[in-house]
C-alpha cells in the first residue's frame, strides 16, 4: 500500500500508522454502560470498504481519514481528518 497524503503527496506505508475504524463515536459522558461497552469493545470488522483514521507520523504529522478496502487493500479516498491543518487541503 502507498498512501497519497493530501498534504505531502504519495508516500510509502511505513510513514503511516493506522488507528482503526473511523465510524465509532465516543459516547457522551452520561451514556449507558451498553453504549460504552459497544464503543470500546465491539467492532463491525468490515470486509470491504472501511473508513479509517490514519496518522502520517513519519511525515507531516497530520491525521487522515482514509477509505480503504480491507479485502484488497485498495485505497479509495484520502482526506484530512477534522481539526488543525485542514484549512489548506480543504481548499
Amino acid at each position: 500500500m502507498r498512501i497519497v497524503c493530501p498534504f505531502c503527496g504519495e508516500r510509502e506505508l511505513g510513514e503511516f500508522t493506522c488507528l482503526g475504524d473511523a465510524k465509532p463515536v465516543r459516547p457522551a459522558a452520561g451514556a449507558s454502560e451498553d453504549e460504552v461497552f459497544d464503543y470500546v469493545y465491539l467492532r463491525d470488522n468490515i470486509a470491504g470498504e472501511m473508513s479509517e483514521h490514519w496518522y502520517h507520523g513519519g511525515g507531516c504529522r497530520a491525521w487522515l481519514k482514509i477509505t480503504r478496502n480491507t479485502l484488497t487493500h485498495e485505497i479509495c479516498s484520502v482526506e484530512p481528518a477534522a481539526g488543525a491543518g485542514a484549512r489548506q487541503a480543504a481548499r
Binding site: 482503526g20 472501511m50 480491507t70 487493500h73
Partner: peptide, 8 residues
C-alpha cells in the same frame, strides 16, 4: 497493524 482480510 491495519484491518485486513487479504492474505498478504
Amino acid at each position: 497493524g491495519y484491518n485486513s482480510y487479504a492474505q498478504r
